[in-house]
Design a protein around this nucleic acid. Structure first.
Lengths: 254, 254
DNA sequence: CGCTTGATTGATGCAAGTCAATTATGGTGG
DNA sequence: CCACCATAATTGACTTGCATCAATCAAGCG
């Protein structure tokens, strides 16, 4: 359990009007005014190496992040080290909001792959609410979307069998990656997880996770690579999971 | 699994300036301006009998609720009927936000006890964001608080043992009830759940839930009544759960 | 080339599910 | 008033899903 904290805050290099997210199908664009505000809101950029901690539970954390590229995850741990992964972070996702509204962070965030993040300052958050109701609305929308993902995870962990859970997780991540356009621009069609991550997401032991994934591999719906997996048959996977993605239009980001 | 939909929308009877929540220690008060807006925002009141559905998954639902009195819960079900309770609703809590931001509700809400709710109209939500940044901020804060509760539930279901989970749930609910002042004004110090509710929250079977609760009963930390329980030793319960409430100051509500 | 990380597999034990029956309680209609 | 039912809680017997323990194997790397 390494807790490397890479300090790689750099001034903004990518100006917001050239933000790579804006061009993607998945996201709605800003109005001119909004863009101007966000550009001003932006404080810097942060590069995180795989395995490094971006936000640590228990800390005061006066920054807000938007993922520009790469994969990360949020998690909590019990005192004896048992870890539960809560959700994954993909480009366009927000991190650290909870810690900006409450006094301290109640979960940690770690990079799964090399990530780049857009950094905002807490102070300016009230200005956002005062001056740009539309962005405030987006922020609430984003928080609400996170909530519905957590609802689905809870249903999954609480009530699905191990096989269904595994199928659900991979179908879910594969869908999110496709929708946000991660696969096209950033690399191969691979979910960059180890089986330990899968286990800690599903609430299963590593060994049993391995045996469960094997069933999916043997069924030919999945391929496992060194530290990641590739979904071969999304339809079958969703069928096993008993889960269908809810289609959404272009979504906001900050 | 009854799906009675009680239609008991009545015009506002309790004016907002006499709102019982405002007087409670747990909640922060409104400014004069805010109060005026909220009073205007309020559309009516809704009375829900125990066991009735307030919001159904899959529906478009253009209303927003704040719980004034009573207990409720949010849940999702799989096609074959397996049910997962996601969280509980107490006075001051918001319901239906997700369905107002997204196109349809992704979970259901049911009354646990007799409830009274304040009803708001979706249309006015944008006005709230435009005219009252402070209330918009509160809305985001509330959404974020729900998110951290779900994080804790996920950790619990995913990584705690059955006994720890049960202890956590009861400690959590007992704490929330105390903090929001439910016990003082609205009845005895009893959590109004059946063991089926506990089971569906913890992701356990009814039988195993019963046997797990028995251990807590035998240890004397808990008392079980006909359809509810009373926490006798909160400190011991938290110790078993390995959980401590995070203390928060007065919190907002809408 | 030895070390570390991640994946894999078999053996064994326990936690939790399922099946089934019983009790207690309150409500209801004859 | 009471037989009858429905709901909630309870308990024992049996089965199974998942955890734990313990090796092994493959690949990348200093």
């Amino acid at each position: 359990m390494t807790m490397t904290q890479a300090k790689t805050l750099t001034p903004p290099r990518i100006p917001c009007d050239l933000c790579p997210l804006r061009r993607r199908e998945a996201f709605r664009d800003f109005s001119g005014e909004e863009l101007q505000f966000v550009a001003n809101f932006k404080f810097g950029e942060h590069l995180a190496e795989p395995g490094t901690t971006i936000i640590a539970e228990g800390q005061r954390h006066p920054q807000l992040y938007t993922v520009l590229a790469g994969w990360g995850f949020r998690y909590k741990i019990l005192e004896d080290g048992r870890r539960q992964i809560l959700n994954y972070l993909l480009p366009g996702d927000l991190a650290g909001l909870q810690g900006n509204l409450m006094s301290e962070m109640l979960h940690s965030v770690e990079a799964l792959t090399r990530m780049s993040l857009c950094v905002f300052e807490r102070q300016r958050l009230t200005a956002l609410f005062r001056q740009h109701p539309s962005l405030a609305y987006d922020l609430t929308w984003i928080a609400s979307r996170e909530e519905s993902m957590l609802d689905e995870h809870l249903l999954s962990i609480g009530r699905r069998t191990a096989l269904e859970r595994a199928a659900y997780l991979l179908a879910f991540l594969d869908h999110r990656a496709h929708v946000t356009g991660v696969f096209g621009e950033e690399g191969p069609f691979v979910l960059p997880l180890t089986q330990q991550h899968v286990a800690d997401t599903l609430g299963l032991s590593l060994v049993h996770t391995n045996k469960t994934l094997r069933k999916l591999l043997d069924a030919g719906v999945l391929r496992w690579l060194d530290r990641g997996s590739e979904v071969l048959d999304p339809a079958r996977l969703r069928e096993i999971a008993g889960w269908q993605p809810t289609k959404e239009g272009r979504r906001p980001f900050i």
